[in-house]
Design a protein around this nucleic acid. Structure first.
Length: 692
DNA sequence: ATTAGGG
DNA sequence: CCCTAAT
């Protein structure tokens, strides 16, 4: 245990990228040199000041060292800023009230600070939300936007735009992008990742708004939890108050406890809180009972993840094979893992979310799939307290226990499976192909995905029923009145774990017509690790809640019960916990995680496409990629304007290099000449425009 | 949402 | 093709 970890940040050592990115032209057409308002200060400076002080004070004052030790956090800050008058100020002027950081995290407090005596900031108020993102060892940080983000003891990174974050302590590195790395040492001061600059004006505001808009419930607070400000002296004073009206310090623990309890946050602050996982039965896993030690289940699942996860970016890092492994597997570390990063798994920008869902199996929303769900979907959408899928499962189990023996045993169970639903399969076939060859192609894809042998899995109320020896009655299938709670999954006959993700995706049977071949992108990028999601059937197909990604996680997790995973049950505790109590479990394998997102398949431009592109660019010039897209590639859904821009870039490059250096399908020289000509022309044109 | 540019 | 910053 690293109990004596020290805070190694300060306010003099942070690096803020000084040079703003080269001015861009609005919409890329007419470059405009915009003068920066020198009086503005980067939001991160203020944030660093505030949050740093907050943490510093908290660490100095927290009565519970073990707690502190455990709270290796990443704080998330949400900035709400309504004014734009900022002047540089001395960071030392910031002062933050001393509070236990645990309190903040558990309660998910919002707080408001007011710049009282800071020149130019007087009267300016900001509300922040401090929330836990990760309690991984040695980290903390925060960010101000809503895009996805990750961090743990061995890596810190982000995958977001316009984010603001910093880290301290044992952070080894910050990954800027997959190809960029920045090393951090424990002695580092706060360092700001380059490219994470935000100004109070404009964008952070909007990002904040978007976040609230996207998921009002994730805020987990209400107006009463936004605390008024008390200005004082020459300081920027921050008042942090727990939601409870009771303030006395002596009440802190009690209120903490209450909060933890009510929020469903299960904080493990003591090392002795570990509980044998065997002590936890299936039901409680899925449905936390008040008396059950849920946090430990969660932790168990965290362990599962942490031992299996991989970070594919790691080997490529500059600076370093020095990935920390020395302490990462220490029990202390495991025990210290967070149990309730509530928002994290919801945090995803609409864009990222869409991006993700574009690539995972989803029901086609054409109505055919809107039949009744195969099982009772207890999932609720949108309000953040969803993820009761496991509740459904456990309640069924509970119902099973309570089932009176007098229930008619000879009552036949009538089931009808009207069709197999095979999720999306991508098939590309020329229009000249015959229907017969199309059928064969479909068959090929299906068999490739399902493998030779099929196994039927049974799902009852969201929970996979693995015990083949149980009777229907024992399992709880004794009425025929609601077979919506019953579902079937097609699975490969064996080896739930396969390195071939497509072959291991069991597919769901559901009640639509046989002709309804549901489409499904076959490629969730699943890591072939035994205990990750790769063994989870895409039962999310049942849920059409496209925009509630948490539902997907729920269904993913609570349905899969893989016998090859001894602790798999622990995994499925996750959805049973309310939003407030969500652990960081999906940190790595979270399908929403950018690491999880599959790269698009490469689709080289054909010569005719190139021709169309050249023609369009000749007409519109470089920098009007939307127009180019609309003109020449409107029907080509897979070609985005970014693609076209990229292709043009490579075309220009290709035209400039020698024939031998070129790769891929050769582009006629004549076309390349046009590329160069158009490029030269429009470059010149742009330069002229700019000078005017 | 678009565009520019680095990777 | 990906990713981010800046519009």
């Amino acid at each position: 245990m690293v109990l004596q970890r020290r805070l190694n940040y300060g306010f003099s050592g942070y690096e803020v990228p000084a040079v703003p990115r080269a001015s861009r032209s609005p919409r890329g057409r007419v470059p405009i040199r915009k003068k920066r308002d020198d009086n503005r200060i980067p939001a991160i400076e203020i944030l660093a000041c505030v949050a740093g002080k907050l943490l510093q004070d908290a660490e100095n004052s927290s009565p519970n060292a073990a707690c502190r030790e455990e709270w290796d956090n990443i704080f998330e800050n949400t900035i709400k800023c309504k004014q734009g008058h900022h002047q540089r100020y001395n960071e030392d002027e910031a002062k933050v009230s001393k509070r236990d950081p645990c309190e903040q995290e558990i309660c998910k407090e919002n707080f408001t600070c007011e710049f009282s005596r800071v020149p130019g900031l007087q009267g300016h108020r900001q509300s922040y939300k401090v929330s836990e993102f990760s309690r991984a060892q040695g980290n903390f940080g925060f960010k101000t936007n809503s895009t996805s983000y990750f961090a743990d003891h061995s890596r810190v990174g982000r995958y977001s735009s316009n984010s603001v974050e910093f880290f301290r302590g044992h952070v080894d590195r910050v990954i800027e992008t997959k190809s960029e790395a920045k090393l951090f040492r424990p002695s580092d001061k706060i360092s700001f990742a380059p490219q994470t600059r935000g100004f109070f004006r404009g964008q952070i505001d909007s990002v904040t708004e978007r976040k609230y808009e996207a998921k009002p419930s994730i805020i987990g607070t209400n107006k009463s939890e936004i605390f008024p400000v008390k200005g004082s002296l020459d300081t920027l004073e921050l008042n942090l108050k727990p939601p409870s009206p009771v303030r006395p310090e002596s009440d802190l623990k009690a209120s903490l406890f209450r909060c933890r309890k009510t929020c469903g946050s299960y904080s493990r602050r003591c090392a002795n809180a570990e509980v044998d996982i065997r002590d936890v039965d299936e039901n409680s896993v899925c449905c936390p009972q008040p008396s059950r030690p849920i946090p430990n289940i969660v932790e168990q699942s965290i362990r599962n993840f942490s031992t299996s996860r991989q970070w594919r970016g790691a080997p490529n890092l500059k600076g370093g094979a020095c990935r920390r492994t020395d302490w990462k597997r220490k029990p202390a570390y495991c025990n210290g893992r967070p149990c309730h990063t509530r928002q994290r798994s919801q945090r995803i920008s609409p864009y990222k979310r869409r991006k993700f869902f574009d690539r995972i199996p989803l029901p086609t929303l054409d109505g055919r799939f809107h039949h009744k769900p195969t099982f009772n979907s207890p999932y609720k959408r949108g309000n953040g307290d969803n993820c009761n899928g496991a509740n459904g499962a456990s309640s069924s189990a509970a119902g099973q226990q309570a089932l009176p023996k007098s229930t008619s045993r000879d009552c036949n169970v009538k089931l009808s499976i009207k069709s197999f639903t095979v999720p999306e399969l991508l098939i590309e076939i020329p229009s000249t192909a015959t229907i017969g060859s199309l059928k064969r192609a479909v068959m090929e894809v299906v068999t490739a995905n399902l493998g030779d042998g099929l196994h039927v899995g049974v799902i009852l109320q969201g929970k996979s029923v693995r015990d083949d020896n149980k009777t229907l009655f024992q399992t709880g299938i004794y009425h025929d009145d609601d077979h919506r709670s019953l579902g079937f999954i097609l699975e490969p006959n064996h080896a739930p774990i396969s390195s071939h993700p497509q072959a291991e995706d069991p597919h769901l049977l559901s009640g639509s017509r046989p002709q309804d071949l549901m489409r499904r992108t076959t490629s969730l990028t699943l890591q072939p690790k035994p205990s990750d999601f790769s063994s989870l059937p895409p039962v999310m197909n049942l849920h059409s809640s496209v925009d509630n990604n948490f539902d997907v996680v729920c269904s993913l997790t609570d349905i899969s019960t893989n016998n090859a995973m001894p602790n798999s049950q622990a995994l499925f505790a996750v959805p049973a916990i309310t939003m407030e109590a969500l652990p960081v479990v999906p940190l790595q394998q979270n399908p929403r995680h950018p690491e999880f997102v599959q790269r698009r398949t490469r689709r080289p431009f054909s010569v005719s496409e190139v021709e169309a592109l050249v023609q369009a660019v000749e007409k519109f010039g470089t920098g009007r990629w939307r127009d180019v897209k609309l003109l020449a590639f409107d029907s080509a859904k897979h070609r985005t304007y970014v693609d076209l821009k990229d292709k043009w870039k490579t075309l220009v490059h290709t035209a400039r290099i020698s024939l031998q250096q070129r790769r891929g399908e050769p582009v006629p020289q004549q076309l390349l000449d046009r590329v160069l000509a158009a490029h030269a022309f429009w470059s010149h044109h742009q330069a002229k425009q700019q000078s005017n």
